[in-house]
């Protein structure tokens, strides 16, 4: 199990961004982490994958443990070899490399099983097989997201951290990515799914967390979150009557939530 406990993260020694966050990701599950822009979702993923350092960020309190072992002082390479892989927000494919080279970079820590992992990824994303010698920079947004996910899978990780995979994709592609996440999970990879698209994330997750200004404000089974009126209001854009709410109501929600927590 991947467990985050009372985590506090500070950027540049002064900017406190996570204020005591606790999250459990049980093996085999899909866990959703929701929250508005700037809530601290990406920061939490960085704290797990060891990438805070790059951003001059630091864990100042709390812990991240994998099966009970603390990992929040480990470097990113070590964390990858322990089986945790993050797919960065915005896909971040190596645009100058071709598709297969991109996938090979993902196998950096696990070259022994390169062939079998490559086959697995190509089976998951047949499109990538067709384009294997093509320059990655010329892929469409959806294809790039698939490449980013495929690249992460090349080391056969136990835990996959996905940062807003549906960002900027057309609804049909979002569906496709969603189905792929389910398939990846079925094949045995635990998924922590960060999304602003709550409908998509909650439709496949078993458990969900809602984050707001560096704190977890809700922690419930996904089904309950889907039924929660606040969530419906704010994240699904649906009021009690099922109609879209105005921005003023949304702001009201945020004020109220902050006061509650």
């Amino acid at each position: 199990m991947l467990a985050v406990r009372n985590l506090e993260v500070v950027y540049n020694d002064v900017i406190l961004v996570l204020r005591g966050v606790s999250v459990d990701v049980e093996e085999g599950k899909i866990v959703a982490l929701l929250g508005a822009n700037g809530a601290g979702k990406t920061t939490l993923l960085r704290a797990i994958s060891g990438l805070l350092d790059v951003h001059d960020g630091e864990v100042t309190k709390g812990s991240v443990t994998l099966d009970g072992e603390p990992i929040h002082r480990r470097n990113p390479a070590k964390i990858v070899t322990l089986g945790i892989k993050q797919v960065l927000e915005g896909r971040r494919i190596f645009a100058e490399l071709n598709v297969e080279e991109n996938l090979r970079t993902g196998a950096h820590t696990n070259t022994k099983q390169l062939r079998s992992n490559l086959d697995r990824v190509y089976d998951l994303f047949p499109l990538l097989r067709e384009r294997q010698k093509g320059t990655a920079g010329y892929l469409s947004g959806g294809e790039q997201q698939m490449l980013a996910m495929g690249r992460a899978l090349m080391s056969n990780p136990r835990y996959l951290l996905l940062d807003e995979p549906s960002l900027g994709l057309a609804p049909l592609l979002v569906q496709q990515i969603r189905d792929l996440i389910v398939e990846i999970n079925k094949q045995g990879t635990t998924v922590l799914l960060v999304e602003q698209n709550a409908t998509m994330a909650l439709s496949i997750a078993e458990h969900g967390y809602v984050m707001e200004t560096g704190k977890i404000v809700m922690d419930k089974p996904a089904k309950e979150l889907l039924d929660d009126s606040d969530i419906r209001e704010f994240y699904l854009g649906l009021g009690a009557e099922g109609a879209a709410k105005s921005f003023r109501d949304v702001k009201h929600y945020k004020r109220r939530k902050r006061w509650l927590s």
């Binding site: 390479a77 494919i93 190596f94 970079t105 820590t109």
Partner: peptide
């Protein structure tokens, strides 16, 4: 090309 993404693949 991209140091952070390289780190995320486990590269040093």
């Amino acid at each position: 090309f991209d140091q952070e993404t390289a780190l995320a693949q486990g590269m040093s």
